[in-house]
C-alpha cells in the first residue's frame, strides 16, 4: 500500500513539473494561435543557460531563476520579433498562419543542432550538486526534494502568470489580443508587441521549468524532445490556452506514468497516455479546461 502512496506523490510532483514545461506552450498558443514546435528547444536552451549560470557563478541552482527567467524572456521576445513577426506580417490576411508553425519547426532544428555544434553531444549535470540525490525519508517512504521544489515553483509560477493576466493592464491587453486580434488592434493595442510579450513570457516560463529540471536531470542537445511531445499532450488534455489546465494535464500524465508501472510494464503507460490523448480529442476536443469558443 505504501508504494502506491509513494508513487502517487511522485506522480503529482513530477506531473506538476511536466505542467510547468508545457505552460509556456499553452501561453504562446493562447495568444498567437500558433503551436510553437520550438518549445522543447527553448526548454533545452533554458537548461543550458541554467547549467552555465550555476557552473560559472556557483550560485544555488534554484536562485539561478533570477538569471534564467530574464535571459529567456528576452530570448523569446526577440526570437518572435526578429524571426516570427515578419512571417505573421506576410500572412496577415490568412486566418490560420500555418507558415509560422513551419518556421517554429525550423527554429527547433536550428537550436538543437546549433547546441550540438557548440556544446557537443555530452550529457552534462551539475557538479557537486547537493540536490541531485536528496530525498525526504519517512521510514520506507521516499520523496525527492528537487521534485518537491519543482512542484512548488510550478504552482507559484502558474499563480503568478494567472494574476498577471487577470489583474494587470498589460495582462488584459494580452487577453484582449488572444480573444480577437482585430478588435484589440482597433482599441489601440499593438498586436505584434503583444505577440513579442507573449512569446517572451512563454519562453521565460520554459526557463523556469528548466531551472526546476536541471538539479535532477541531464542537460544535452536533444533533451527538449523528451518533454516536447509530452507538452503537446498535456496542453491538449488541459485545454489549449489554459494555464491551470496545463498544470492539471501535467499531473494527470505524471500520475499515469508513475502509478501505471506498478500494474503493468513501463512501456504500456506510454500507450495509455497517448490513448487518453486520443480519447480527449474525440470526446472533448477543447480539453478539460479549454474555452469552448472558436479561436
Amino acid at each position: 500500500m505504501l508504494y502506491i502512496i509513494e508513487d502517487t506523490i511522485n506522480g503529482i510532483l513530477m506531473g506538476s513539473i511536466y505542467g510547468l514545461t508545457a505552460m509556456g506552450l499553452t501561453i504562446i498558443f493562447g495568444v498567437l494561435k500558433v503551436i510553437n514546435f520550438a518549445h522543447g528547444s527553448m526548454l533545452m536552451v533554458g537548461m543550458y543557460v541554467t547549467y552555465w549560470a550555476v557552473t560559472l557563478t556557483g550560485i544555488n541552482p534554484y536562485l539561478a531563476i533570477v538569471i534564467v527567467a530574464p535571459v529567456m524572456f528576452f530570448f523569446g521576445y526577440y526570437l518572435q520579433d526578429i524571426v516570427i513577426k515578419p512571417i505573421f506580417i506576410a500572412e496577415k490576411n490568412v486566418r490560420e498562419p500555418i507558415t509560422v508553425i513551419i518556421v517554429t519547426t525550423g527554429i527547433w532544428y536550428i537550436l538543437d543542432n546549433l547546441t550540438l555544434l557548440i556544446f557537443g553531444p555530452q550529457y552534462r549535470s551539475l557538479a557537486d550538486n547537493p540536490w541531485r540525490s536528496k530525498m525526504l525519508e519517512f521510514g520506507d517512504l521516499f520523496i525527492s526534494v528537487p521534485k518537491l521544489y519543482g512542484c512548488i515553483i510550478a504552482i507559484v509560477t502558474a499563480a503568478a502568470i494567472y494574476w498577471f493576466f487577470q489583474k494587470t493592464s498589460m495582462g488584459r491587453a494580452i487577453r484582449a489580443t488572444s480573444m480577437d486580434r482585430e478588435a484589440a488592434s482597433l482599441q489601440g493595442i499593438n498586436q505584434y508587441k503583444i505577440y513579442n510579450l507573449a512569446f517572451g513570457i512563454g519562453s521565460a516560463t520554459a526557463g523556469i521549468a528548466a531551472v526546476t529540471l536541471v538539479p535532477f536531470n541531464n542537460v544535452f542537445p536533444t533533451v527538449g524532445v523528451l518533454f516536447d511531445i509530452k507538452g503537446f499532450i498535456i496542453v491538449v488534455l488541459g485545454g489549449l490556452g489554459s494555464i491551470g489546465g496545463a498544470l492539471v494535464g501535467g499531473i494527470i500524465v505524471g500520475l499515469i506514468e508513475s502509478v501505471g508501472p506498478q500494474f503493468m510494464t513501463a512501456t504500456w503507460t506510454e500507450a495509455i497516455v497517448y490513448g487518453l490523448f486520443l480519447v480527449v480529442l474525440f470526446v472533448k476536443p477543447s480539453g478539460l479546461f479549454g474555452q469552448k469558443h472558436d479561436w
Binding site: K230, G254, A266, T269, E270
Partner: peptide, 14 residues
Amino acid sequence: PYPSTATDLSPVVQ
C-alpha cells in the same frame, strides 16, 4: 522494458 525517452524512472526503480 521501459521507454528510452522516459523523463522519470522512479516508478521503474520502485
